[in-house]
Design a protein around this nucleic acid. Structure first.
Length: 885
RNA sequence: GCGGACGUGGCGGAACGGUAGACGCAUGGGACUUAAAAUCCCUUGGGAGCAAUCCCGUGAGGGUUCGAAUCCCUCCGUCCGCACCA
């Protein structure tokens, strides 16, 4: 190569990236050995669903993980950075129905495509550990663990409500219910109860709650969301007697759970869930109630739909008797907003102090009695109309509770009702207390049954004689039959002619396979453990190896998984521990939730969405307008939204990588926006990143041409020292920013460093003083290693241009010389009454009195004080001085 | 509806309770070029002033503090989750 030529060449990303990816793969430098003695570091990004092609959200997620993985490798850790596929799920079946492709081939084809795309990003992944959750070699172990959990008492069967499409005769997911109707049939959905398998996550409610306090490397917001989701509440279970003259036969009492027993004298009504046994019993003798209950079931099962539906009630005619007054009778309503799944499925309504109860009472003319008087309000005049009062105060209108605080009243009610007795019922022998203190959790057991084909079969056989029989371990995995059809809705496993018919493993009589498959959240609840030894064919994990790698040091994924996936994984890890598959409770030591990739939307005059690739943006002065690139037709620029196929505001990573290279895409994904916030994809931003790639290449080329002295010079003059300081300052900042996952600041510091180097070179021709030449070479070596985690291909190319024969991917992180960060003098801003008026330069170690004297001597301060003496001078060491006039 | 977050120049954003606007993008001006592209240099929150400098500014309104983008209260707006989307 001609010595002068390369710095004038443009950096050819496409050619260089393919070359380095090949070299990395050939040398296997990202394959991680389990027997490596160095300290471990496990970095994991949430594995993708193989939907077809990767999107920019994947690029962002996997780039962040890759930066950390490459950095930790350079810091001397044995890094585990694997990748796999969350491959079961509904879209494969939808594709089968829409396009007549088999879910299996659709899924594996997608995996092949997406793997190629991920590889073109230059991620430092250990592909030797790759698996898909739809591999029988993976789900075999999941079936084994299902049976382990069953034996350990962690699995149960329960009746659960599902969305039922009466036309398609199939179960619908919540997302398949649109405005209460089935997405394909358009028929109004019904709630239907099915006998389903559940994991007993609620056994761990308290433990999952308590352990959140120790997850100090998780975002506080995620811990808070999980806390609220688990929803621990301390309250009272109260048994209201029913007026025998009004209750259906056999019904003598109604149990309610409440946390507001202090408001018992404000009760105006009782409300029970439509599927409460008392409601069902009454419906048998009241057809109008039966019709009302049927109406309630048309809302579907989604919580948001139930909560936002209009509150409706039906007076059953049944009366409940107030526990403190045998003459006080409360009407019992069936109400559509009461859930059988929470508490006892029944409440007493206190309209004055609960907004939902108030809305309900106002609608049905039930009135309200305020029983808690807010501080500053007069008990005789305090009244409630539209806004319930749920704060603290003094008890009023409450007989023996009057004058107490809310807390005292709760205690008094609990004490009295605990001591009162109800006669025994049925087989009971002893009288029972009217109320008992209870701790209730909102968290429900995890329903895992799905009436679908493309999921992990539940390894159970139903035998009329033996009942529920687990599939023997030697018969695992229970694999999915491949000869299935998707020409009609419903579960192909259920209508398969032979698959479900088997002999009972215990008695040998004809029996039936379970045709439900598992929720795909099960698949993703232990994949992180499987990555530690995916080669073990005998067991889900090799505990010694899993325990050495786990927990994941840094887990990175979307905030949308803040509750379900992460909570299920925390439960599953505990369940695996109980069954001996792993030795810890918490799977993820550090968690980071990254933001989405969003883009402007474009709409043609005819209302159709237009993809960004077809749009040309024209800027004239301050104004931006969009036209259709092909025809020049004007296009409306719409709001910036999450990239989605429906609005066509997506950008294909393949196109970006082909045009600019992976490094440019990676760099832009890390620039500007803080990683936990949304990032806006813009063409200008990508071009800026691409220009910086070229600029770094030129900068390194210039420095590579400067011949440094063989030995470090004995002393550095100002210019050389400034270069060294800039380099080590950047090193300190970038290291800290990567460790704290503040990639946007990391990018800014690299820009600053590159700017400083450009300035230092300035107009310098070929002759450079030896000290500066040495400093520039040191700085270039540091710079390349600093940006390597973000732009690994460019870094390799630059590293080679600087004359190194090693791979920068295998190089150690530069060593910081801390003395270069210390300045002798510091500049402190000087405020007068909180407004900045001047700067003062003082020695770093100057005592406060000396700083104060220097500040008061400043012209700007004298002028601001106008001859008066200051009231106070506040000196904050190393930061600021404020003069209070 | 319930739970959680976010809101700073033309734009993305920076700022242990301590100089508001680092860094990038865009804009305007200039250099180089026959020209364009690329590159390099300068400018850029608003207002007043020849200038030094001053005033106003972090969604809105209050509060705490010597000092608030940051802490507290109320309100407005946007986004995420709500148990069968992954």
């Amino acid at each position: 190569m001609n010595t002068e030529s390369h710095k004038h060449d443009r950096y050819n990303a496409r050619q260089a990236e393919a070359r380095w990816q090949k070299i990395w793969a050939e040398r296997g430098i990202f394959a991680t050995r389990n027997d490596d003695p160095r300290p471990k570091y496990y970095v994991l990004e949430m594995f993708p669903y193989p939907s077809g092609r990767i999107h920019m959200g994947h690029v962002r997620n996997y780039t962040m993980g890759d930066v950390l993985a490459r950095y930790m490798r350079a810091k001397g850790y044995n890094v585990l950075h694997p990748m796999g596929w969350d491959a079961f799920g509904m879209p494969a079946e939808n594709a089968a129905m829409d396009r007549k492709v088999h879910p299996k081939s659709w899924t594996y084809d997608n995996i092949a495509t997406m793997k190629k795309q991920l590889q073109s990003m230059g991620l430092s992944l250990d592909w030797t550990r790759e698996f898909a959750t739809c591999d029988p070699g993976y789900y075999k172990h999941q079936q084994k663990m299902f049976i382990d959990f069953l034996k350990a008492g962690l699995v149960a069967r329960e009746y659960r409500k599902v969305n039922w499409d009466p036309v398609d005769q199939t179960v619908l997911a919540n997302e398949q219910v649109i405005d209460g109707r089935g997405w394909r049939s358009g028929a109004p959905v019904e709630q239907r109860e099915l006998h389903q398998w559940v994991f007993k996550i609620s056994d761990y409610s308290q433990e999952l709650l308590d352990a959140l306090d120790r997850l100090d490397r998780w975002p506080e917001k995620v811990r808070l969301m999980q806390r609220n989701w688990i929803g621990r509440s301390e309250g009272l279970l109260i048994r209201f007697a029913l007026d025998p003259a009004t209750a259906p036969g056999g019904q003598t009492e109604l149990e309610v759970f409440t946390t507001r027993h202090d408001t018992l004298f404000g009760a105006r009504f009782m409300a029970i869930a439509p599927d409460h046994p008392l409601a069902q019993a009454q419906a048998k003798r009241d057809p109008r109630l039966a019709a009302f209950i049927a109406d309630c079931k048309r809302i579907g099962t989604a919580q948001a739909a139930i909560d936002t539906a209009e509150k409706m009630g039906f007076d059953t005619g049944i009366k409940a008797i107030h526990p403190f007054d045998g003459e006080w009778k409360l009407p019992v309503y069936v109400a559509n907003f009461i859930l059988m799944e929470y508490g006892t499925g029944a409440i007493f309504g206190c309209p004055a102090h609960d907004q939902r109860d108030l809305d309900f009472a106002n609608k049905y003319g039930l009135g309200n009695t305020p029983v808690v008087c807010p501080p500053g309000q007069e008990a005789t005049t305090f009244a409630i109309t539209d806004i319930a009062y749920d704060g603290d105060g003094t008890m009023i209108n409450s007989r023996f509770l009057d004058g107490m605080t809310v807390a005292q009243a709760k205690e008094e009610v609990a004490r009295r009702l605990e001591g009162a007795r109800r006669p025994p019922r049925g087989a009971e022998t002893a009288p029972r207390p009217v109320a008992e203190r209870r701790i209730n959790y909102r968290l429900r057991d995890w329903g895992i049954s799905r009436q679908r084909y493309w999921g992990c079969p539940i390894p159970i056989i139903h035998c009329e004689r033996c009942g529920i029989v687990p599939v023997p371990e030697k018969d695992l995995p229970v694999t999915l039959p491949e000869d299935v059809t998707f020409d009609k809705p419903g579960n192909p496993l259920d209508r398969h002619p032979t698959w479900k018919h088997v002999a009972c493993p215990q008695c040998g009589n004809p029996a039936r396979r379970e045709t439900d498959t598992m929720d795909t959240f099960v698949d993703s609840s232990w994949y992180f453990a499987r990555f530690t030894d995916p080669w073990n064919e005998e067991a889900p994990t090799t505990p010694a190896i899993a325990n050495a790698w786990m927990p994941v040091n840094q887990y990175i994924g979307g905030i949308e998984h803040a509750i379900l996936h992460l909570l299920y994984s925390r439960f599953f890890t505990r369940a695996m521990r109980k069954c001996g598959h792993i030795g810890m409770d918490e799977p993820f030591d550090g968690l980071f939730t990254q933001g989405m990739v969003v883009h402007e939307t474009y709409r043609a005059k005819n209302g159709e969405w237009v993809e960004p690739a077809a749009v040309r943006i024209e800027v004239d002065g301050e104004r931006r307008r969009a036209v259709l690139a092909a025809t020049g037709e004007p296009i409306d620029i719409g709001p910036i939204e999450k990239m989605s196929k429906s609005k066509k505001n997506t950008v294909d990573p393949d196109d970006i990588i082909a045009a600019y290279g992976a490094d440019t895409a990676r760099w832009f994904m890390l620039s500007d926006s803080p990683p936990d916030r949304d990032v806006i994809w813009t063409e200008e931003g990508v071009q800026g990143a691409w220009r910086f790639v070229q600029r770094l290449w030129r900068l390194i080329g210039v420095i590579a041409d400067i011949q440094p002295p063989a030995a470090p010079p004995p002393a550095f003059a100002d210019r050389a020292l400034a270069v060294r300081k800039a380099a080590h300052r950047a090193l300190a900042h970038v290291s800290e920013d990567i460790e704290k996952l503040r990639f946007n600041r990391c990018v800014a510091h690299i820009y600053e460093f590159a700017n400083a180097l450009s300035d230092a070179i300035g107009s310098t021709a070929t002759t450079v003083a030896p000290d500066l030449a040495w400093a520039l070479r040191e700085a270039a070596d540091i710079l390349v290693r600093l940006f390597h985690p973000m732009m690994p291909h460019l870094a390799e190319e630059c590293w080679a241009a600087l004359g190194h024969s090693t791979l920068v991917a295998a190089e150690a992180w530069p060593t910081l010389e801390p003395q270069l960060l210390v300045e002798a003098d510091i500049t402190l801003p000087v405020q007068v009454n909180g407004k900045k008026r001047a700067d003062v330069v003082v020695p770093r170690s100057a005592p406060p009195a000396e700083i104060e004297a220097a500040v008061l001597a400043l012209d700007a301060v004298k002028k601001a004080l106008a001859g008066r003496s200051p009231k106070k001078v506040i000196v904050v060491p190393q930061r600021i001085v404020n003069v209070v006039a």
